[in-house]
Design a protein around this nucleic acid. Sequence first.
DNA 1: CATCAGGGCCCTG
DNA 2: CAGGGCCCTGAT
Length: 325
Amino acid sequence: MLPKPRRLTIQYDLILSPVAPFHFDGTVYKPSHFPSGDCMYEDGQYWQTMRFDDRVLGIRLLNMGSVDRPKVALSIFSSKQISEALLFHIKSEIEYRFDMNIDLKEFYDTCKRDSVLKPVIKRWKGMRVSNGRSLYEFLVIATVLQNATVRRSAQMLENLFEHYGAKVNYDGKTLSSFWLPKSIDQASENELRNLKLGYRAKIFKHQSYAFMSGKLDESQLRLLNTDALKSRLLELYGVGPASVWYVLFEVFKRYNAFEYISPWEQKIYSHILYNRDMVEAKVILDDVNSKWGKWKMLAIHYLFEDLFWQRKKQHIPWLDGLIRL
DNA sequence: CATCAGGGCCCTG
DNA sequence: CAGGGCCCTGAT
């Protein structure tokens, strides 16, 4: 007996002008990420639900330009009126989350003569690190990723959406939305465990409380330098060495956040950087650091996503065993 | 059937 | 600082 999706019938249209070059598809869609019910991608189009306090909104981004002359139509769908001030806030939040207002010229200059990066940047020039979700929501993803295969991660997230999220319908799509931290703060650990989250139930409780109580404030954290930010994040229960770098990079756009390699990624980097099965993590970290310095994670991101885009088009045998569905 | 590792992290000794 | 335990699943 699922409730009918809430229809978001009021539509607001805005225009975004990302800093050129801007690669729309490479930015809004990351093929290396597991699919989830809160967003949807098609060529040149992207839908995603978003929470702003008690509001559940539907977002649509349409590519109206080119890499060198970027233009994005942003539509915001809502069930009730939105004030000018909130519209502006949503717009700038989206620009931040999709890293639209950043000039990457220096990065491209740095890598111009790099034989590994050059062809990849040619394909994806203007691609940004992006994450449409809030810090709290991203941490949920990072938590379901722990110690689980892709299928199980996706299932855990789906269970959470079903129980604590909502379904909305807009622009002909039905998507799930995230919940607010207080919903999980009110849930019992046992109730969460029934969603097959295992030991992660405790992590969700801790983190939801931290956000609900205001102990953590994303907009304040954005102002911190990377070291300070990193230690604040590590104080959070359930955030360890693997998650913290994902968060620093994807949520906070710290382009050099690459100091830890998990085993499955190590195998992938060994292949794409050395054409070998396994290279020592420290060797990879040192090499990447000396080659790409303050842009190292962004550089890695280009290589990684390029690989997964290729994989959508053609079979890459060596990659098969590394992606555990 | 049983066992085990998996896209970590916490906690203990 | 090393290593066991944690939840659930699917692979073996």
